[in-house]
Structures are given as structure tokens and as C-alpha cells.
Design a protein around this nucleic acid. Structure first.
Lengths: 258, 258
DNA sequence: CGGAAGATTGACAGTAATCAAACGCTGTGG
DNA sequence: CCACAGCGTTTGATTACTGTCAATCTTCCG
């Protein structure tokens, strides 16, 4: 999330601004291995790059799109962290998903052809690659590897959606959230056990359909149990196994790997 | 669900048996307009048909697949109704989805390459078309219309998953469930307002993360309010508008249509 | 007809929400 | 450099929605 961005394009260093950064070269991107075009060969990768629009750089609170916006493109998170949310008729906010580095945003808008949720940046800098949908579908025709990756990606999306949707206790859901976040933030290189969450307690609560007070209380309880260390947004998984046991029910990420 | 099956293949009348029915011809199928190959031209349709395996005919309680089974194919519901569910470590059953006529089963297994849920028939007869995944991905390459339909289908899957997952009251979720079921069961031809649910109260409860008693109570309450008539599995939506108001929050099906 | 399974209704309990207040960062301005 | 405002977080007390336990009723088959 707010970790040192993995080999960002130099031009994106024109930070602070909505001044559009230059188009990113996937071949130089530090997160290529975890992104959509991971399995493309060099020539395909070049074609894929060519079809991307300029990246968008969002500060904390900047919107990528809002409910009702027409759907034109999917987005890949190059750095940062974003949340998709809806506000219902009663004014309650529902967080549908958090989007970490390497993940794809916007699949829920394909069918309705416009965005049903809003998407906002959480980290201080959020760099997203813009993948025009029309182009993407064309490329899928030519690149079986890309098509396969997209199908996997959407399948994974369904898995994660159904995971938290289940009938689990507050503690189980929060534990699962932490384990999932850890799995999704983990770099191939290894991992210290320390999370740096970009989202607020309120966001976590709205995602897990809990009150923010409940999130605090459970985090405190897990802390006292010695399973985690919770200091504001810096959360350390002291006993991942123990956490995983609590979250045993859920967690597609730990259960099934191809 | 248990409605008169829409123009089923004559051979499927060899009911009662697991004796495999002959391959169904999509071009003759009564639900073609609501199914995956809806937008294919006649020639493409012929090719699509050729690549299908024999249909599977399931009685109530028969399993289509179980957790852990290797993933080879997606399934399209030609008639009947099925549920996907998981049993967690504590032995609780979680219903992930109900599958109505025209809907696709198995997308959550694409990523893990084996089934993470079990799928079982609910109606007395459930006829599902078997679409080998390997073949499907090949056909997608050649048929843009098929590819587009699959992307829409998976997007819709994400939408419905996130709908019920939200933080809504028991009444809101149940109302939304009824409205969604009505929308998904509605024939193009029109509709009386009467539902014939194939699933038990327990199934509904496990899907909506409620106790079966709560489902009963809320149905009774909605009945007294004059919004529905609930007689066992036969539920009539007397005041769909009123129901829709309660479910205002959720319901991708009523909200966004392309 | 009788038994079993599912559905309904009632009484009570528990988890998590709500209301309320205090605490601790963070950033600003004196 | 420190004071203070503002916001998010934490903690406590109480409420309420929904779950659990239990009994009854209905339907469906054997």
C-alpha cells in the first residue's frame, strides 16, 4: 500500500499533481509478475503496452470514478490502495472491496456498462493503469494467455466476494480480513509480518459490515491474546497460524492455490 | 425452478435416471435467449453445440460436483434449480448461490482449478448442460460475441455476490432475495407474480446468513403487511413495489440494466 | 394411519450496534 | 516550541436485532 512503490515509472515522480504521468511500460514495471499481462511474451507485452491509456495518479480521497459514470476501462493498481464503495438510499456506506497492488478494478461495471460503485484512493499516492475495455476484449482474442489471466482474475474476484459474504462472527471476519490482506500485500520476495493498512477503521468496518467500535474492540482483543500487534494503521501479525485458525472458515487465498 | 421446463429436449424425458440424456441442441433450446450462446449466429451456434458434452440430469439432492473435485467444465442450467454451498470447519453450511434457469455454474472454480464449493440439485429434475472449459476458452477466441457474453456473465456474478454481502437488515436481505428471485425467474413472456421456490427455508437462511426461524418470522411479517402471500414454497409477490422499496439498497437486477 | 422432516411460533439469550465520552495523534498558529 | 483544534480511535454502558432452544403444527410418505 504505502510501501515504497515497486520501481515506479520515473515520470510518475511528478507527484502531487493530477498532471498526468507518462504511460507506464509494463516491461519495466516492478509488479508485472503480479499483474494482468504477467504471462505475455515480450512481443505481446509490447502490444499490450501500446493499448494502454495514460496512467492516473490519485491522492488520498481522489476518485477514480463514481456511481453512474459510464464504463470504459478497467484499472490495474500499480501502487497505492483504493476502495470501491456504494452509498445506499439510507446513506449508509458499503465498502465492496479494497484494491491492492496488482489487482484489477471495475469488473462489476462490465455487465451494467456503467459504474455501480465509486472508487477512491486511500493511500497518499495511488497510481493506476488504465486499460480501455474495448481494447482489452480485442487483445483477449489474440492472446490466449491474456484471456486465461482475465478469467482467473474474475474467478478470484468471485471467490473473495463470497468469502466475506458468509455467515461468520465478527472475529472470524476480521481475522480473515487480516490474513487476506497479508496474503495480498505479500511480496514475492518475502515478508516481515507487518501490515501498513491504508484504510481507516471505519473503512474496515464498512467492509466487514461491523461498527468501527467493534473493529477496535476485536483488534484490542486479538492484541491481548498475543495474535497481533495493533498500533493504529500499523498491524503486525505476531501469530499468523493462530489467526488463520480463527479464520479457518473463510480465506480462499490460503486454502486453494492452483 | 420447478415450472414446466421450457421446451426440454425430448430425450431428457428419460427422467428418473442418471441415464444420460442425449446432447441438447442449443438451437432448439427454449432458454437459448437467456443462455450463454444467445448472441451467436447460426453457424457459431452449431460449432458451440458440437463442443458440448452430454447433459447431466440431477434429481433433488444429487450432486453436480463436490468440494475438492477437479475443475473441467462450467455448467448451464437448462431446467431446475441448484445451490452451491460450502461446509466450514465448524460444520456450518454456507450457501454461496442459487442457480436458476439460464445461469452458469462453476466460475468460482476457474482460478483454483478445482471446486471450492459443492453443487446440488434442488428441484426434482435439474438438467444442466456441460461446457468443457478448455473448449470454451478456445471458442471464446474465435467468437467475440461469446467472449463478451462470458465477461458480462462473470461481471453479473460479481454484482450479485456483493449485493447480499452488504450490511443490510434481515428484512432488507430477504426482500431483496425475493425481488431478485422474481427477476431471475421471470420469463420474457410475462409473469404472474407467483414464485415457486425450489429451496427450503433452511437454504434461504443459509444463503442470507439468517436462522431459518428468522426467515419464517419475516415472511410472516411481510405476509401480514400484505406485501406477499407466503404458503410454503409458493410465494406470491402481492406488492412488488413495496418489496422493492424495502430492498432499495441492494438489487443490482432492478437498478442497473444495460 | 403414523412417523419423520420441515415450517411456524414462542420464550429467552447473546452478539454486535448504538449512544456517549475520553483519549491520542496530527497539523496549525501563536 | 508549545497550545489548541479537529479528527479518528478507543473504551464504557446500554439497547436491540437476531440466534438459540423448545414446543407445536403441517405436510409428506411409507
Amino acid at each position: 500500500m504505502r510501501d515504497p512503490a515497486p520501481a515506479p515509472d520515473p515520470s510518475s515522480r511528478s507527484h502531487a499533481g493530477r498532471t498526468e504521468p507518462a504511460r507506464v511500460r509494463c516491461s519495466n514495471c516492478g509488479i508485472l509478475s503480479r499483474c494482468l499481462p504477467a504471462s505475455l511474451n515480450p512481443e505481446q507485452l509490447r502490444v499490450f503496452e501500446e493499448s494502454m491509456q495514460r496512467n492516473r495518479l490519485l491522492g488520498a480521497g481522489d476518485h477514480l470514478f463514481r456511481t453512474g459514470d459510464p464504463f470504459h476501462a478497467l484499472y490495474a493498481v500499480q501502487s497505492g490502495c483504493l476502495k470501491s464503495y456504494m452509498v445506499d438510499a439510507e446513506g449508509r456506506e458499503h465498502v465492496l472491496a479494497f484494491h491492492f497492488v496488482g489487482e484489477i478494478i471495475g469488473v462489476d461495471a462490465i455487465y451494467p456498462e456503467r459504474h455501480v460503485s465509486s472508487c477512491v484512493g486511500l493511500a497518499e499516492q495511488n497510481n493506476v493503469c488504465v486499460i480501455p475495455y474495448r481494447t482489452l476484449t480485442r487483445l483477449m482474442q489474440e492472446m490466449p494467455a491474456l484471456q486465461a489471466e482475465i478469467m482467473r482474475m474474475m474467478s478470484r474476484y468471485v471467490l473473495t466476494s463470497t468469502a466475506i459474504a458468509g455467515d461468520f462472527s465478527a472475529e472470524e471476519r476480521l481475522a480473515a480480513f487480516l490474513v487476506m490482506a497479508a496474503a495480498r500485500l505479500r511480496r514475492p520476495g518475502g515478508w516481515s509480518g507487518e501490515l501498513n493498512l491504508a484504510m481507516s477503521r471505519q473503512d474496515i468496518a464498512n467492509f466487514l459490515r461491523l461498527a468501527p467500535e467493534t473493529v477496535s474492540r476485536i483488534l484490542a482483543r486479538l492484541h491481548k491474546s498475543g495474535l497481533i500487534k495493533a498500533d493504529r494503521k500499523r498491524i503486525t501479525l505476531v501469530d499468523p497460524e493462530g489467526l488463520g485458525e480463527i479464520a479457518a472458515c473463510i480465506n480462499p487465498y490460503t486454502r486453494h492455490r492452483p
